[in-house]
Design a protein around this nucleic acid. Structure first.
Lengths: 231, 231
DNA sequence: CGTCCAGTTGACTCACCTCAAACGTGGTGG
DNA sequence: CCACCACGTTTGAGGTGAGTCAACTGGACG
Protein backbone atom coordinates (compact mmCIF):
# COMPACT_ATOMS: atom_id res chain seq x y z
CA UNK A 1 0.00 0.00 0.00
CA UNK A 2 1.08 3.54 -0.57
CA UNK A 3 4.28 4.86 -2.05
CA UNK A 4 7.39 2.82 -2.09
CA UNK A 5 10.94 3.97 -2.38
CA UNK A 6 13.32 1.16 -3.01
CA UNK A 7 16.40 1.41 -0.91
CA UNK A 8 18.35 -1.77 -1.33
CA UNK A 9 20.75 -3.65 0.85
CA UNK A 10 18.27 -4.31 3.61
CA UNK A 11 15.99 -7.27 3.99
CA UNK A 12 12.32 -6.73 3.34
CA UNK A 13 9.81 -9.05 4.89
CA UNK A 14 7.27 -9.11 2.09
CA UNK A 15 9.28 -9.02 -1.11
CA UNK A 16 7.04 -7.10 -3.43
CA UNK A 17 9.72 -5.63 -5.61
CA UNK A 18 7.63 -6.51 -8.59
CA UNK A 19 5.22 -3.70 -7.81
CA UNK A 20 6.46 -0.27 -8.81
CA UNK A 21 9.60 -2.14 -9.73
CA UNK A 22 12.31 0.42 -9.40
CA UNK A 23 14.51 -1.48 -7.07
CA UNK A 24 17.42 -1.42 -9.47
CA UNK A 25 17.49 2.33 -9.64
CA UNK A 26 19.35 2.85 -6.47
CA UNK A 27 22.21 0.40 -6.89
CA UNK A 28 24.56 3.35 -7.06
CA UNK A 29 23.68 4.67 -3.63
CA UNK A 30 23.89 1.30 -2.04
CA UNK A 31 26.34 2.49 0.58
CA UNK A 32 24.25 5.29 1.87
CA UNK A 33 26.12 8.54 2.19
CA UNK A 34 26.72 9.32 -1.47
CA UNK A 35 23.42 11.06 -2.08
CA UNK A 36 22.91 12.77 1.25
CA UNK A 37 21.12 9.72 2.54
CA UNK A 38 22.35 7.28 5.11
CA UNK A 39 20.92 4.60 7.32
CA UNK A 40 20.81 5.97 10.82
CA UNK A 41 21.45 3.17 13.25
CA UNK A 42 19.88 -0.17 12.50
CA UNK A 43 16.46 -1.72 12.58
CA UNK A 44 14.09 -0.39 15.23
CA UNK A 45 11.18 -2.23 16.78
CA UNK A 46 7.92 -0.68 17.85
CA UNK A 47 5.21 -2.40 19.84
CA UNK A 48 1.57 -2.10 18.81
CA UNK A 49 0.19 1.44 19.11
CA UNK A 50 3.57 2.94 19.93
CA UNK A 51 4.19 6.33 18.42
CA UNK A 52 7.10 6.38 15.98
CA UNK A 53 7.05 10.14 15.67
CA UNK A 54 4.51 12.88 16.31
CA UNK A 55 3.23 15.77 14.27
CA UNK A 56 5.70 18.59 14.65
CA UNK A 57 8.62 16.37 15.61
CA UNK A 58 11.93 16.99 13.96
CA UNK A 59 11.98 15.26 10.59
CA UNK A 60 15.69 14.63 10.44
CA UNK A 61 15.08 10.96 9.87
CA UNK A 62 12.53 9.10 7.85
CA UNK A 63 11.74 5.39 7.76
CA UNK A 64 11.26 2.32 5.72
CA UNK A 65 8.98 -0.45 6.94
CA UNK A 66 10.65 -3.83 7.23
CA UNK A 67 7.75 -5.75 8.70
CA UNK A 68 4.40 -4.98 10.25
CA UNK A 69 2.11 -2.08 9.44
CA UNK A 70 2.46 1.60 10.25
CA UNK A 71 -0.25 4.26 10.10
CA UNK A 72 0.36 7.95 9.44
CA UNK A 73 -2.36 10.27 10.68
CA UNK A 74 -3.47 13.71 11.72
CA UNK A 75 -5.49 14.74 14.76
CA UNK A 76 -7.90 17.54 15.48
CA UNK A 77 -7.68 19.15 18.89
CA UNK A 78 -10.76 17.30 20.11
CA UNK A 79 -9.26 13.93 19.27
CA UNK A 80 -10.84 13.25 15.92
CA UNK A 81 -8.34 11.37 13.83
CA UNK A 82 -7.84 10.94 10.11
CA UNK A 83 -5.53 8.17 8.99
CA UNK A 84 -3.73 9.22 5.87
CA UNK A 85 -2.23 5.90 4.92
CA UNK A 86 -1.18 2.47 6.08
CA UNK A 87 2.41 1.54 5.26
CA UNK A 88 3.54 -2.03 4.78
CA UNK A 89 6.91 -3.71 4.23
CA UNK A 90 8.96 -1.79 1.68
CA UNK A 91 7.06 1.48 2.06
CA UNK A 92 8.79 4.71 2.95
CA UNK A 93 7.09 7.05 5.37
CA UNK A 94 7.97 10.22 7.19
CA UNK A 95 9.97 11.88 4.45
CA UNK A 96 9.10 15.58 4.60
CA UNK A 97 9.68 18.77 2.71
CA UNK A 98 10.49 20.87 5.76
CA UNK A 99 12.12 19.91 8.99
CA UNK A 100 8.98 18.97 10.85
CA UNK A 101 6.76 15.95 10.46
CA UNK A 102 3.34 17.01 9.21
CA UNK A 103 1.69 13.80 10.40
CA UNK A 104 2.30 11.42 13.20
CA UNK A 105 3.20 7.78 12.71
CA UNK A 106 2.23 4.86 14.91
CA UNK A 107 2.67 1.11 14.88
CA UNK A 108 -0.58 -0.59 13.89
CA UNK A 109 0.87 -3.88 15.10
CA UNK A 110 4.30 -4.82 16.35
CA UNK A 111 6.65 -3.79 13.61
CA UNK A 112 10.21 -3.08 12.61
CA UNK A 113 11.49 -0.14 10.61
CA UNK A 114 14.81 1.20 9.37
CA UNK A 115 15.54 4.85 10.05
CA UNK A 116 17.39 6.94 7.48
CA UNK A 117 19.05 10.19 8.30
CA UNK A 118 18.54 12.82 5.69
CA UNK A 119 20.08 16.15 4.94
CA UNK A 120 18.03 18.92 3.38
CA UNK A 121 16.95 18.18 -0.14
CA UNK A 122 18.95 21.26 -1.11
CA UNK A 123 22.08 19.21 -0.49
CA UNK A 124 20.94 16.13 -2.31
CA UNK A 125 23.02 16.27 -5.45
CA UNK A 126 22.60 12.73 -6.56
CA UNK A 127 20.29 12.95 -9.49
CA UNK A 128 19.16 9.35 -9.38
CA UNK A 129 18.30 9.64 -5.73
CA UNK A 130 16.37 12.84 -6.17
CA UNK A 131 14.43 11.24 -9.00
CA UNK A 132 13.58 8.44 -6.62
CA UNK A 133 12.44 10.78 -3.93
CA UNK A 134 10.47 12.72 -6.48
CA UNK A 135 8.83 9.61 -7.72
CA UNK A 136 7.95 8.75 -4.14
CA UNK A 137 6.42 12.17 -3.57
CA UNK A 138 4.38 12.04 -6.76
CA UNK A 139 3.05 8.59 -6.01
CA UNK A 140 2.08 9.63 -2.50
CA UNK A 141 0.33 12.60 -4.01
CA UNK A 142 -1.64 10.52 -6.50
CA UNK A 143 -2.71 8.18 -3.74
CA UNK A 144 -3.82 11.10 -1.59
CA UNK A 145 -5.99 12.40 -4.43
CA UNK A 146 -7.67 9.06 -4.77
CA UNK A 147 -8.28 9.09 -1.05
CA UNK A 148 -9.85 12.53 -1.23
CA UNK A 149 -12.36 11.34 -3.79
CA UNK A 150 -13.20 8.46 -1.49
CA UNK A 151 -13.59 10.63 1.60
CA UNK A 152 -15.53 13.37 -0.10
CA UNK A 153 -17.86 11.56 -2.42
CA UNK A 154 -18.34 7.93 -1.51
CA UNK A 155 -20.97 6.28 0.67
CA UNK A 156 -20.13 3.98 3.56
CA UNK A 157 -20.47 0.77 1.50
CA UNK A 158 -18.37 2.20 -1.30
CA UNK A 159 -15.69 3.24 1.16
CA UNK A 160 -15.52 -0.17 2.77
CA UNK A 161 -15.52 -1.91 -0.61
CA UNK A 162 -12.67 0.32 -1.77
CA UNK A 163 -10.75 -0.49 1.37
CA UNK A 164 -11.17 -4.22 0.82
CA UNK A 165 -10.10 -4.01 -2.80
CA UNK A 166 -7.08 -1.94 -1.84
CA UNK A 167 -5.88 -4.62 0.56
CA UNK A 168 -6.82 -7.51 -1.67
CA UNK A 169 -4.53 -6.11 -4.36
CA UNK A 170 -1.47 -6.48 -2.23
CA UNK A 171 -2.57 -9.48 -0.26
CA UNK A 172 -0.49 -12.49 -1.24
CA UNK A 173 -3.36 -14.86 -0.57
CA UNK A 174 -5.48 -13.31 -3.26
CA UNK A 175 -8.99 -13.40 -1.96
CA UNK A 176 -8.36 -13.61 1.77
CA UNK A 177 -7.43 -10.36 3.42
CA UNK A 178 -5.78 -10.45 6.83
CA UNK A 179 -6.15 -7.17 8.62
CA UNK A 180 -3.51 -5.91 10.98
CA UNK A 181 -5.68 -2.99 12.08
CA UNK A 182 -8.72 -2.58 14.31
CA UNK A 183 -12.15 -1.38 13.21
CA UNK A 184 -11.23 1.97 14.70
CA UNK A 185 -8.27 2.22 12.35
CA UNK A 186 -10.42 1.33 9.38
CA UNK A 187 -13.03 3.86 10.46
CA UNK A 188 -10.47 6.63 10.82
CA UNK A 189 -9.01 5.77 7.45
CA UNK A 190 -12.40 5.89 5.73
CA UNK A 191 -13.91 8.81 7.61
CA UNK A 192 -16.55 6.66 9.33
CA UNK A 193 -17.29 5.34 12.82
CA UNK A 194 -16.44 1.85 13.99
CA UNK A 195 -20.12 0.98 14.23
CA UNK A 196 -20.70 1.91 10.61
CA UNK A 197 -17.68 -0.09 9.49
CA UNK A 198 -18.90 -3.09 11.44
CA UNK A 199 -22.47 -2.82 10.21
CA UNK A 200 -21.30 -2.38 6.63
CA UNK A 201 -19.11 -5.47 6.81
CA UNK A 202 -22.02 -7.45 8.27
CA UNK A 203 -24.22 -6.20 5.46
CA UNK A 204 -21.68 -7.24 2.84
CA UNK A 205 -21.54 -10.65 4.42
CA UNK A 206 -25.35 -10.93 4.39
CA UNK A 207 -25.24 -9.98 0.71
CA UNK A 208 -22.73 -12.80 0.19
CA UNK A 209 -20.02 -10.50 -1.14
CA UNK A 210 -17.63 -11.41 1.65
CA UNK A 211 -17.16 -13.84 4.50
CA UNK A 212 -15.88 -13.07 7.97
CA UNK A 213 -14.32 -16.21 9.43
CA UNK A 214 -12.83 -14.03 12.18
CA UNK A 215 -13.01 -10.30 12.71
CA UNK A 216 -9.56 -9.80 11.21
CA UNK A 217 -9.90 -12.24 8.31
CA UNK A 218 -12.03 -11.31 5.36
CA UNK A 219 -12.72 -13.61 2.43
CA UNK A 220 -13.73 -11.74 -0.70
CA UNK A 221 -16.33 -13.91 -2.39
CA UNK A 222 -17.31 -11.52 -5.15
CA UNK A 223 -14.45 -9.21 -6.00
CA UNK A 224 -16.12 -8.12 -9.22
CA UNK A 225 -19.14 -6.83 -7.32
CA UNK A 226 -16.92 -4.99 -4.87
CA UNK A 227 -14.97 -3.43 -7.70
CA UNK A 228 -18.20 -2.46 -9.39
CA UNK A 229 -18.92 -0.13 -6.47
CA UNK A 230 -15.76 1.78 -7.23
CA UNK A 231 -16.73 2.72 -10.75
CA UNK B 1 -3.58 28.19 -3.11
CA UNK B 2 -1.86 24.92 -3.75
CA UNK B 3 1.65 24.17 -4.80
CA UNK B 4 3.73 26.61 -6.71
CA UNK B 5 6.70 25.95 -8.88
CA UNK B 6 8.54 29.09 -9.80
CA UNK B 7 9.38 29.17 -13.46
CA UNK B 8 10.64 32.63 -14.26
CA UNK B 9 10.68 34.74 -17.41
CA UNK B 10 6.93 34.85 -17.79
CA UNK B 11 4.60 37.46 -16.38
CA UNK B 12 2.36 36.42 -13.54
CA UNK B 13 -0.84 38.28 -12.90
CA UNK B 14 -0.84 38.15 -9.11
CA UNK B 15 2.77 38.61 -8.05
CA UNK B 16 3.01 36.54 -4.93
CA UNK B 17 6.64 35.61 -5.17
CA UNK B 18 6.94 36.31 -1.49
CA UNK B 19 5.07 33.11 -0.64
CA UNK B 20 7.14 29.99 -0.92
CA UNK B 21 9.82 32.34 -2.18
CA UNK B 22 11.93 30.14 -4.37
CA UNK B 23 11.79 32.24 -7.47
CA UNK B 24 15.54 32.63 -7.55
CA UNK B 25 16.16 28.91 -7.71
CA UNK B 26 15.48 28.52 -11.35
CA UNK B 27 17.56 31.34 -12.76
CA UNK B 28 19.77 28.77 -14.38
CA UNK B 29 17.04 27.14 -16.38
CA UNK B 30 15.68 30.42 -17.58
CA UNK B 31 15.84 29.40 -21.20
CA UNK B 32 13.80 26.29 -20.82
CA UNK B 33 15.40 23.33 -22.48
CA UNK B 34 18.37 22.79 -20.21
CA UNK B 35 16.56 20.63 -17.69
CA UNK B 36 14.27 18.71 -19.95
CA UNK B 37 11.66 21.40 -19.58
CA UNK B 38 10.52 23.84 -22.18
CA UNK B 39 7.65 26.20 -22.76
CA UNK B 40 5.46 24.63 -25.39
CA UNK B 41 3.93 27.35 -27.48
CA UNK B 42 2.79 30.48 -25.75
CA UNK B 43 -0.01 31.52 -23.45
CA UNK B 44 -3.33 29.75 -23.94
CA UNK B 45 -6.75 31.10 -23.07
CA UNK B 46 -9.65 29.05 -21.78
CA UNK B 47 -13.21 30.26 -21.40
CA UNK B 48 -15.15 29.52 -18.23
CA UNK B 49 -15.89 25.81 -17.72
CA UNK B 50 -13.73 24.73 -20.65
CA UNK B 51 -11.79 21.55 -20.11
CA UNK B 52 -8.03 22.05 -20.21
CA UNK B 53 -7.36 18.35 -20.13
CA UNK B 54 -9.26 15.25 -19.07
CA UNK B 55 -8.45 12.32 -16.84
CA UNK B 56 -6.49 9.85 -18.91
CA UNK B 57 -5.28 12.39 -21.47
CA UNK B 58 -1.65 12.34 -22.43
CA UNK B 59 0.37 14.24 -19.87
CA UNK B 60 3.12 15.37 -22.19
CA UNK B 61 2.55 18.96 -21.17
CA UNK B 62 1.75 20.55 -17.87
CA UNK B 63 0.71 24.13 -17.11
CA UNK B 64 1.27 27.20 -15.07
CA UNK B 65 -1.60 29.55 -14.35
CA UNK B 66 -1.02 33.10 -15.53
CA UNK B 67 -4.41 34.54 -14.60
CA UNK B 68 -7.79 33.23 -13.56
CA UNK B 69 -8.53 30.09 -11.59
CA UNK B 70 -8.30 26.45 -12.62
CA UNK B 71 -9.82 23.47 -10.84
CA UNK B 72 -8.44 19.94 -10.94
CA UNK B 73 -10.92 17.19 -10.16
CA UNK B 74 -11.95 13.60 -10.38
CA UNK B 75 -15.31 12.14 -11.33
CA UNK B 76 -17.18 8.99 -10.43
CA UNK B 77 -19.08 7.26 -13.19
CA UNK B 78 -22.41 8.60 -11.96
CA UNK B 79 -21.21 12.17 -12.17
CA UNK B 80 -20.22 12.80 -8.57
CA UNK B 81 -17.26 15.13 -8.58
CA UNK B 82 -14.47 15.82 -6.13
CA UNK B 83 -12.42 18.93 -6.70
CA UNK B 84 -8.88 18.30 -5.60
CA UNK B 85 -7.60 21.85 -5.74
CA UNK B 86 -8.07 25.32 -7.13
CA UNK B 87 -5.05 26.77 -8.85
CA UNK B 88 -4.38 30.50 -9.06
CA UNK B 89 -1.77 32.63 -10.80
CA UNK B 90 1.69 31.16 -10.35
CA UNK B 91 0.50 27.66 -9.54
CA UNK B 92 1.63 24.64 -11.50
CA UNK B 93 -0.90 21.97 -12.32
CA UNK B 94 -1.03 18.86 -14.44
CA UNK B 95 2.49 17.63 -13.76
CA UNK B 96 2.28 13.86 -13.50
CA UNK B 97 4.40 10.89 -12.65
CA UNK B 98 3.27 8.78 -15.56
CA UNK B 99 2.19 9.73 -19.01
CA UNK B 100 -1.49 10.14 -18.26
CA UNK B 101 -3.28 12.84 -16.34
CA UNK B 102 -4.82 11.38 -13.21
CA UNK B 103 -7.25 14.27 -12.83
CA UNK B 104 -9.02 16.57 -15.22
CA UNK B 105 -8.53 20.31 -15.26
CA UNK B 106 -11.12 22.94 -16.11
CA UNK B 107 -11.29 26.71 -16.18
CA UNK B 108 -13.26 27.99 -13.19
CA UNK B 109 -13.45 31.39 -14.89
CA UNK B 110 -11.88 32.74 -18.07
CA UNK B 111 -8.21 32.18 -17.61
CA UNK B 112 -4.82 32.03 -19.26
CA UNK B 113 -2.14 29.39 -18.77
CA UNK B 114 1.32 28.59 -20.10
CA UNK B 115 1.92 25.04 -21.29
CA UNK B 116 5.27 23.38 -20.67
CA UNK B 117 6.41 20.35 -22.55
CA UNK B 118 8.12 17.83 -20.39
CA UNK B 119 10.23 14.80 -21.01
CA UNK B 120 10.12 11.86 -18.65
CA UNK B 121 11.57 12.63 -15.28
CA UNK B 122 14.07 9.90 -16.04
CA UNK B 123 15.69 12.31 -18.47
CA UNK B 124 15.65 15.30 -16.17
CA UNK B 125 19.27 15.63 -15.25
CA UNK B 126 19.25 19.14 -13.98
CA UNK B 127 19.53 18.77 -10.25
CA UNK B 128 18.13 22.18 -9.42
CA UNK B 129 15.12 21.56 -11.58
CA UNK B 130 14.43 18.17 -10.12
CA UNK B 131 14.66 19.66 -6.65
CA UNK B 132 12.05 22.15 -7.73
CA UNK B 133 9.77 19.50 -9.09
CA UNK B 134 10.28 17.47 -5.98
CA UNK B 135 9.44 20.42 -3.80
CA UNK B 136 6.31 20.94 -5.87
CA UNK B 137 5.29 17.30 -5.44
CA UNK B 138 5.88 17.33 -1.71
CA UNK B 139 3.91 20.52 -1.21
CA UNK B 140 1.03 19.14 -3.25
CA UNK B 141 1.16 16.04 -1.12
CA UNK B 142 1.07 17.97 2.16
CA UNK B 143 -1.88 19.98 0.92
CA UNK B 144 -3.70 16.82 -0.10
CA UNK B 145 -3.23 15.39 3.39
CA UNK B 146 -4.69 18.49 4.93
CA UNK B 147 -7.60 18.18 2.55
CA UNK B 148 -8.16 14.56 3.56
CA UNK B 149 -8.47 15.54 7.20
CA UNK B 150 -11.01 18.15 6.19
CA UNK B 151 -13.05 15.79 4.04
CA UNK B 152 -12.97 12.90 6.45
CA UNK B 153 -13.35 14.48 9.84
CA UNK B 154 -14.82 17.97 9.69
CA UNK B 155 -18.43 19.12 9.91
CA UNK B 156 -20.06 21.35 7.32
CA UNK B 157 -19.39 24.59 9.24
CA UNK B 158 -15.80 23.62 9.84
CA UNK B 159 -15.32 22.83 6.18
CA UNK B 160 -16.74 26.14 5.04
CA UNK B 161 -14.73 28.04 7.64
CA UNK B 162 -11.57 26.30 6.49
CA UNK B 163 -12.38 27.19 2.92
CA UNK B 164 -12.82 30.86 3.78
CA UNK B 165 -9.59 31.00 5.76
CA UNK B 166 -7.75 29.30 2.95
CA UNK B 167 -8.82 31.99 0.49
CA UNK B 168 -8.43 34.84 2.92
CA UNK B 169 -4.78 33.93 3.34
CA UNK B 170 -4.02 34.59 -0.26
CA UNK B 171 -6.55 37.30 -0.87
CA UNK B 172 -4.78 40.59 -1.38
CA UNK B 173 -7.65 42.54 0.16
CA UNK B 174 -7.20 40.83 3.49
CA UNK B 175 -10.65 40.36 4.87
CA UNK B 176 -12.70 40.46 1.69
CA UNK B 177 -12.66 37.29 -0.34
CA UNK B 178 -13.74 37.44 -3.97
CA UNK B 179 -14.75 34.04 -5.22
CA UNK B 180 -14.23 33.02 -8.81
CA UNK B 181 -16.14 29.77 -8.32
CA UNK B 182 -19.77 28.82 -7.96
CA UNK B 183 -21.39 27.24 -4.92
CA UNK B 184 -21.25 23.96 -6.82
CA UNK B 185 -17.48 24.25 -7.07
CA UNK B 186 -17.21 24.99 -3.37
CA UNK B 187 -19.49 22.07 -2.56
CA UNK B 188 -17.47 19.67 -4.69
CA UNK B 189 -14.28 20.89 -3.10
CA UNK B 190 -15.61 20.41 0.44
CA UNK B 191 -17.56 17.22 -0.14
CA UNK B 192 -20.94 18.87 0.48
CA UNK B 193 -23.99 19.88 -1.55
CA UNK B 194 -24.59 23.39 -2.81
CA UNK B 195 -27.56 23.77 -0.48
CA UNK B 196 -25.46 22.93 2.54
CA UNK B 197 -22.78 25.40 1.46
CA UNK B 198 -25.36 28.10 0.97
CA UNK B 199 -27.13 27.41 4.24
CA UNK B 200 -23.85 27.32 6.12
CA UNK B 201 -22.77 30.66 4.70
CA UNK B 202 -26.15 32.15 5.64
CA UNK B 203 -25.73 30.76 9.13
CA UNK B 204 -22.27 32.27 9.45
CA UNK B 205 -23.71 35.61 8.34
CA UNK B 206 -26.51 35.36 10.91
CA UNK B 207 -23.85 34.64 13.54
CA UNK B 208 -22.05 37.79 12.39
CA UNK B 209 -18.86 35.97 11.46
CA UNK B 210 -19.09 37.03 7.84
CA UNK B 211 -20.99 39.37 5.53
CA UNK B 212 -22.25 38.54 2.05
CA UNK B 213 -22.49 41.80 0.07
CA UNK B 214 -22.95 39.69 -3.06
CA UNK B 215 -22.92 35.95 -3.51
CA UNK B 216 -19.33 36.03 -4.73
CA UNK B 217 -17.97 38.56 -2.23
CA UNK B 218 -17.45 37.50 1.35
CA UNK B 219 -16.31 39.85 4.10
CA UNK B 220 -14.72 38.03 7.00
CA UNK B 221 -15.79 39.91 10.12
CA UNK B 222 -14.34 37.56 12.70
CA UNK B 223 -11.38 35.71 11.31
CA UNK B 224 -10.30 34.57 14.77
CA UNK B 225 -13.60 32.77 15.30
CA UNK B 226 -13.33 31.14 11.88
CA UNK B 227 -9.81 30.02 12.62
CA UNK B 228 -10.93 28.71 15.98
CA UNK B 229 -13.08 26.16 14.16
CA UNK B 230 -9.98 24.72 12.54
CA UNK B 231 -8.22 23.86 15.76
C1' DC C 1 -14.15 -19.73 35.28
C1' DG C 2 -13.97 -14.77 35.21
C1' DT C 3 -12.09 -10.61 33.11
C1' DC C 4 -11.03 -7.76 29.37
C1' DC C 5 -11.47 -5.74 25.15
C1' DA C 6 -12.56 -5.73 20.25
C1' DG C 7 -16.37 -6.27 17.73
C1' DT C 8 -21.41 -6.52 16.84
C1' DT C 9 -26.12 -5.21 17.13
C1' DG C 10 -30.15 -2.38 18.28
C1' DA C 11 -32.79 1.87 19.08
C1' DC C 12 -32.79 6.43 18.47
C1' DT C 13 -31.01 11.04 16.81
C1' DC C 14 -29.37 14.39 13.83
C1' DA C 15 -26.51 16.51 10.28
C1' DC C 16 -26.67 16.65 5.86
C1' DC C 17 -29.09 15.42 1.54
C1' DT C 18 -33.12 15.61 -1.65
C1' DC C 19 -36.67 17.74 -3.87
C1' DA C 20 -38.98 21.78 -4.82
C1' DA C 21 -40.17 26.46 -4.85
C1' DA C 22 -38.85 31.36 -4.53
C1' DC C 23 -35.50 34.93 -5.08
C1' DG C 24 -32.27 38.17 -7.34
C1' DT C 25 -29.20 39.79 -10.50
C1' DG C 26 -27.31 40.36 -14.96
C1' DG C 27 -28.15 40.16 -19.80
C1' DT C 28 -31.17 40.59 -23.87
C1' DG C 29 -34.62 42.28 -26.72
C1' DG C 30 -38.52 45.09 -27.45
C1' DC D 1 -35.91 52.25 -20.10
C1' DC D 2 -38.38 48.47 -18.87
C1' DA D 3 -40.10 43.55 -19.37
C1' DC D 4 -38.55 39.26 -19.57
C1' DC D 5 -35.61 35.40 -19.21
C1' DA D 6 -31.82 32.51 -17.51
C1' DC D 7 -29.24 30.89 -14.16
C1' DG D 8 -26.91 30.91 -9.85
C1' DT D 9 -28.34 31.19 -5.25
C1' DT D 10 -31.27 30.97 -1.24
C1' DT D 11 -34.82 29.00 1.54
C1' DG D 12 -38.15 25.54 3.08
C1' DA D 13 -40.02 20.94 4.15
C1' DG D 14 -39.20 16.41 4.63
C1' DG D 15 -36.27 12.16 4.21
C1' DT D 16 -32.23 9.31 5.26
C1' DG D 17 -27.55 7.69 5.85
C1' DA D 18 -24.49 7.67 9.14
C1' DG D 19 -23.58 8.98 14.01
C1' DT D 20 -24.54 8.35 19.05
C1' DC D 21 -25.43 5.82 23.01
C1' DA D 22 -25.82 1.63 25.08
C1' DA D 23 -26.32 -3.21 25.62
C1' DC D 24 -24.63 -7.57 24.26
C1' DT D 25 -21.33 -11.17 22.26
C1' DG D 26 -17.33 -13.80 21.93
C1' DG D 27 -12.62 -14.92 21.74
C1' DA D 28 -8.01 -14.42 24.30
C1' DC D 29 -5.81 -14.77 28.39
C1' DG D 30 -4.89 -15.40 33.16
Amino acid sequence: MSAQLAIPSHPVATPDQALHARTSWLKTVDGGTAGGLQPSGSVQHFAQDREIYGEGDNAGVFFKVVSGVVRTCKFLSDGRRQIDAFHVAGDIFGFEMGWEHTLSAEAVCDCTVIPYRRRGIETVNDEVLSQQLFSYAMRSFARAQEHSLLLGRRSAVEKVAAFLIEWAEQSPAGTVVSLAMTRQDIADYLGLTIETVSRTLSQLERDALIELPTARQIRLKDIAALQEMNA
